[in-house]
Computed example of a mutant assay.
Amino acid sequence: MTPQWLTSIQTPLASAFYKRCGSKEKAKADERVAVIRDNSQQIVASLRLRRIGGHWLLRALLVDPQRRQQGIALQLLQFVGAQNPEPIWCFPYPHLQSLYHQADYQLVAEAPEPILTAYNVYLNRQPLLLMCCNR
């Protein structure tokens, strides 16, 4: 299983994956979408990068429930980090902190204004989120 980027034309494939896994997330053509496919070319993990005020925000990392605890999420996070020279911000749940730490994300208390604004919006909906950055 090798991570890869989807083209903007392929982003509906990620949306179909999210739906198949019971998520309401939808990939958008203006996002960078990374996936991992199994040997039959079925998507088993996906994440999205969205540009916010000149900064990258990682959103909607999801691994097929049948494939969890196999290192797939870490593989996808490491791929995206290696492929993107700019810092990537994310807002993971506390129980995922060790996963993000393994992928070189660190807890941060400060962030650029567009990221901080997005974080505060997320906090209003989901109060137990962390703020991390990989650089």
Rank of each mutant, 00 (worst) to 15 (best):
R135D: 12
S8D: 10
G53T: 05
K28N: 04
R125K: 15
Q106I: 02
Q106V: 02
Q42S: 07
A118D: 09
L107G: 07
N39P: 05
E31W: 15
E31F: 11
C21A: 10
L58W: 06
W89E: 12
S8N: 08
C21E: 08
S40N: 10
A14D: 04
R135E: 12
F91T: 14
M131K: 03
C133G: 02
P65A: 01
L99H: 05
P112A: 04
L128Q: 12
C133N: 08
M131E: 03
N39H: 09
P65V: 00
T7I: 06
Q97V: 13
C132P: 01
I52V: 15
I43S: 14
T7F: 06
H101Q: 13
N84V: 12
Q70S: 03
S8G: 02
A45I: 05
L130H: 03
L47H: 00
Q42K: 07
E31T: 11
N124K: 12
D38N: 13
R37T: 01
P65Y: 00
L62Y: 00
L128Y: 07
L61D: 12
A103H: 05
T11C: 14
E113I: 06
S23H: 13
Y93T: 05
E25C: 05
K19F: 02
P3M: 08
T11G: 13
Y119W: 15
Q4V: 01
V63P: 04
Q10V: 03
Y119L: 10
L74W: 01
R32E: 04
Q70I: 00
P3R: 10
Y122T: 03
A82Q: 15
A60W: 06
L99Q: 03
L6A: 10
V35T: 13
Q97A: 15
E31G: 11
L123Q: 13
Q66P: 00
G81E: 02
A27S: 08
S23Q: 14
R48C: 14
